[in-house]
Design a protein around this nucleic acid. Sequence first.
DNA 1: AGCAAAAATGAGAATAATTATCATTTTTTA
DNA 2: TAAAAAATGATAATTATTCTCATTTTTGCT
Lengths: 128, 128
Amino acid sequence: MNYSRQRETVLSVLKSTKDHPSADWIYSECKKVIPNIGLATVYRNLEQLVAQGKVIKVPVGQDRERYDADISPHCHGACPVCGKVWDEDISSPLRDSLKTECEKNHSDGYSLTFFRVCGDCKAKQGQQ
Amino acid sequence: MNYSRQRETVLSVLKSTKDHPSADWIYSECKKVIPNIGLATVYRNLEQLVAQGKVIKVPVGQDRERYDADISPHCHGACPVCGKVWDEDISSPLRDSLKTECEKNHSDGYSLTFFRVCGDCKAKQGQQ
DNA sequence: AGCAAAAATGAGAATAATTATCATTTTTTA
DNA sequence: TAAAAAATGATAATTATTCTCATTTTTGCT
């Protein structure tokens, strides 16, 4: 794999946020750095970064894929109303059990997401 | 919500398998029972069954949504090569920690998926 | 049973995320 | 510095899912 400024930009944009963004958000951020970057290039590079293990996909069951440059084992929360995704802290017994389980069943990794209506959406629901 | 044979068929088709199928598989199975059923009807009913809590979506980060009529708390394994999804047994400490965590953070539920190349795909990789 | 309102349907059009194509440009290596 | 390999941008193609709407089915009521 050769060097490309586009790929480096995709990665640095993703590293700059904790928002678990979708490809189109990453695309629009990359355009601020490389105005003529193509959407397909962003998708291509995200795919390659995932294949390289430098980025993970966060499956939250929505229309768009979410990406994360934090590849350390960690868990997510997701709001089923607005689709927001955040990092979720878990207890250390749970963290340990997950690690043990993962080693036991020889998995390459895991994805743990808790579903919960976020504060913003709860507030909006309360208004109506 | 009114009764519909189509919705009942969608649910019974989904209950008949442990394969965590996608909408198009469910559609083709439903056609064996109701030959003129429409694809949109299957999607509509899946969505309603999810809203009712009779069915869950299984987010595994692939192109198609997967559905599951087993709504008890349980975990999944997924093959990143062929996309197969299966139920994965976990240790009881892990199960307990998950339950505790979920109650602690007031989540509506969680999704835990382990990623691992399945036996079939491993065998195929070995051949080449 | 008969009838009106509400809900559901099937067909197909529309939407939208992602992937593929391909001629051109950039990077690497020798 | 020239050739080979990889990457790019533009855009077409693909495909899963949602929307529209005229018709049919279900339901609650008399």
